[in-house]
Amino acid sequence: MPLVPLLDVDNLHARYGQARVLHGVSLTVSPGEVVVLLGANGAGKTTLLRAITGHVERTGSIKFAGTDITRASPAAIVSLGLVQVPEGRGTFADLTVQENLRLGAYTRRVTAAALALEISEIVERFPILGERAGQRAGLLSGGEQQMLAIGRALLARPRLLVLDEPSLGLAPTVTRAVFDTLRELHDEQGLSLLVVEQNADLSLGIADRAYVLEAGEIQVDGPAAAIRDDAGLRRAYLGY
């Protein structure tokens, strides 16, 4: 890689209390790159994302845009532009769609007028959010909530968007729409993406590179296309 990586994870260990989950994971995402992280249930994928975004006990080194964020707080990490869309979408069910979007910009200093403008841009991309602006987020469908979660994350002005299982619980057509949106965001704004997915086929389709995590260690690392075309690898790690 000629470029300095945007995200540079080196020898990362993480644990929940006594349970060690990650054993020295190294991973990079370059500016403008789409990277997918694959692996079976229980491989440590969510933990890896949560460790990167500052939500689990961790040791090792995590650098984002040249800044060491290994010990940074979640809020500080978000304000640097490393923004996560958590598994299960993590919208605020009791708040309105509009309020959910406003919360996206929580870590930034923006005037009310500027924020309103930015929200209208998001609504242009996801028109359904405009129609539902005054409704409680808990009343949205799964796909709409995923759109809301992505929209909210975009309002934090991410340089790297980290998504945990964006297809979880969604119908296939909705999943496809979510991935189309991600592709667009990457193509139009050069947004870097790190995506954890069970749906290997679809995610490898939009990714530049892929990692396969198993039992807390990176087992495979390479261009997405190569992994997709390697029948042996697919059978061994991806189960199809």
Binding site: H55, P74, A75, I77, G90, F92, L95, L103, A156
Partner: peptide, 23 residues
């Protein structure tokens, strides 16, 4: 207010609030 909104977010979903960068 922004802080008031943040407060309600934390009351609704503390984990999601943390992810969204709310202190």
């Amino acid at each position: 207010t922004k802080i008031g909104l943040g407060f309600r977010a934390v009351a609704t979903a503390p984990e999601a609030s943390r992810v969204a960068g709310i202190p």
